[in-house]
């Protein structure tokens, strides 16, 4: 590998961009492909370009052999996923430890300092500020999931818009269909694109008949994982 490719790879990792390093094991020639460049004409072997989208989703490094018998090693670098929870509520108390075990970096944002206390949220990054200010410290990106759980439009609406604008891989909002219908109306009035609004998962969570806050947390986390592993699959038309 040449030092410039190594620098580019480390740069992508620092910027939280997904990238795959392709190494031809026979020749030693390397090629770095960022996920953002997948739509471009990469001028690489079809056998490789077909497998890259799926590798970006699974995040699995591994060997690939072409029909000609050439062996390539794909080193897949995907940023550690984040989960930003809006609302230091009961569901969040269950969701935060579960999500951390599942490998997510969890941040909880809630301006209501009565809710956002370290006693209720031990070992979690807790930001007791309005989302407008909090999101400056926790930038959203395509490898971040946002779950809005306060029920309060004053707190939930802005981060939902920010999440859609940042192309977060998951955007979910707690509330009944009726609550969500009002939310949709507000967001459309605020000028959010209808196609973007339709990306919000509401009612939040997979339909597993969850009752308790902890069960709802399970359904939300399952939906987040589902979104992470199918990331981009629908848009590019190659379902996992």
């Amino acid at each position: 590998m040449d030092r410039f490719t190594l620098q580019s790879l480390n740069e992508a990792r620092r910027q939280r961009q997904a990238a795959i390093l392709i190494t031809n094991l026979a020749s030693g020639v390397v090629r770095l492909v960022r996920e953002n460049d997948l739509g471009l004409d990469l001028m690489i072997e079809p056998a490789l370009s077909q497998i890259l989208p799926q590798r970006f989703r699974s995040a699995h490094s591994g060997l690939v052999e072409t029909a000609e018998g050439d062996q390539f090693f794909l080193t897949v670098h995907v940023p550690p996923p984040r989960l930003v929870v809006i609302g230091a509520v009961h569901i969040s108390q269950a969701l935060a430890p579960m999500a951390r075990i599942a490998g997510f970096d969890v941040t909880i944002i809630d301006p209501r300092t009565a809710f956002a206390t370290p006693e209720r949220f031990a070992d979690v990054a807790l930001v007791p500020h309005w989302p407008e200010d909090a999101l400056k410290r926790v930038p959203l990106d395509p490898f971040t999931a946002v779950a809005a759980l306060t029920h309060d439009p004053k707190i939930d609406d802005l981060p939902l818009q920010a999440a859609l604008a940042a192309n977060c891989f998951y955007v979910g909002a707690l509330g009944s269909r009726k609550t969500h219908a009002k939310r949709v109306e507000r967001l459309l009035t605020a000028g959010v694109d209808a196609a973007d609004v339709a990306k919000i998962r509401a009612p939040i969570g997979l339909a597993i008949g969850a009752q308790s806050p902890a069960e709802i947390a399970v359904s939300v986390l399952a939906e987040v994982v589902d979104a992470l592993r199918k990331r981009g699959a629908i848009a590019s038309g190659d379902a996992a």
């Binding site: 190494t23 094991l25 699995h60 490094s61 591994g62 060997l63 090693f73 080193t75 897949v76």
Partner: peptide
């Protein structure tokens, strides 16, 4: 770089 493993390998591919 670990490029392939079989059985109980202590470190993962990559």
């Amino acid at each position: 770089t670990v490029v392939e493993t079989w059985g109980s390998a202590p470190r993962p591919v990559g």
